[in-house]
Design a protein around this nucleic acid. Structure first.
Length: 266
DNA sequence: ACGAGCGCCTGTCGGC
DNA sequence: TGCCGACAGGCGCTCG
């Protein structure tokens, strides 16, 4: 499910509910949810710690605790719910953290791809991530230089979290369409001017996604309405809003890929 | 270094 | 109605 705008929305909604909460108990309902440490160590260490902040890095939810840091990656089908203790857990809940205020956090994860880390050194997990695309430090010239450093298809490169952190399948298709770039364009062939347009496009689609509270397709992620503003994703055979040509769907890097064959020439 | 293929999972949808 | 494959907001691994 979630890409940068969805994770940002989730984090902003969770903040008020989580800051200052002390974790009093933990139920691990699907063992492989834990990337590290082992379940026994996790329970022993996490209980008693309080949440001091709620942040995001790329697609990771970052919860600094009293001693360690809790990292949550939602992958394809994850969500975080806060419920009253009087409400029962749900079918797809994989990890539950009980707080000191009659509420609990449920990590819901239908497809079981999501992962949780409890670590004193979060940089071990986050350190390899590329730059935050919405940070001031992420400059158009930097993107151009990085593109020159690879000879890769632009779409899989943008999806590579070591290159840029936070782009997923929807926002990548949208950004490439906005920038008039074919998804198979080799990164080193992108000119400085095109790189600048791509930089603007990436930031524009991410910012608009956040402003619309993310993209809600099916019912995995609720509450956003950016799905009503998508230009190419999910619009196979529908007319391009720029030129009227039917949007094409192909596969690039094993991912469904939507683009306008007229606006986005290879 | 790059790209393809596959595994990890559950659920939904379309075709027959 | 039922079965069966394709597909889904992600990512890590192997192989050539």
């Amino acid at each position: 499910m979630p890409e940068l705008p969805e994770v940002e929305t989730i984090v902003n909604r969770l903040r008020a509910d989580l800051i200052g909460r002390k974790i009093e108990a933990a139920d691990l309902l699907w063992e492989r949810t834990l990337a590290s440490p082992k379940p026994a160590h996790f329970k022993k260490n996490v209980i008693g710690q309080s949440i001091s902040a709620v942040k995001r890095r790329g697609k990771y939810i970052v919860l600094p605790l009293s001693l360690d840091t809790l990292l949550i990656h939602l992958r394809m089908s994850g969500d975080i719910l806060i419920r009253r203790e009087s409400e029962p857990i749900h079918k797809h809940d994989r990890l539950v953290l009980h707080f000191d205020n009659e509420h609990y956090l449920a990590f819901s994860n239908m497809r079981k791809f999501g992962r949780v880390w409890l670590t004193p050194t979060p940089e071990d997990v986050l350190g390899k991530l590329g730059p935050e695309p919405l940070d001031d430090a992420f400059r158009a010239e930097m993107l151009y230089e990085k593109l020159q450093g690879h000879k890769r298809q632009i779409k899989p490169l943008l999806l590579d979290q070591h290159f840029i952190a936070g782009m997923g399948n929807i926002y990548t298709d949208e950004a490439l369409h906005l920038a008039d770039l074919h998804p198979l364009t080799k990164s080193d062939l992108i000119k400085e001017k095109q790189a600048q347009i791509l930089w603007k496009s990436i930031r524009k689609v991410l910012r608009e996604g956040i402003a619309r509270n993310g993209t809600s397709i099916d019912w995995i992620y609720r509450g956003g309405d950016f799905q009503n503003y998508l230009q190419v994703y999910g619009r196979k055979n529908k007319p391009c809003f720029k030129c009227g040509s039917p949007i094409k769907k192909t596969t690039v890097g094993q991912r469904g890929t939507h683009f306008c064959p007229q606006c986005q020439k290879e």
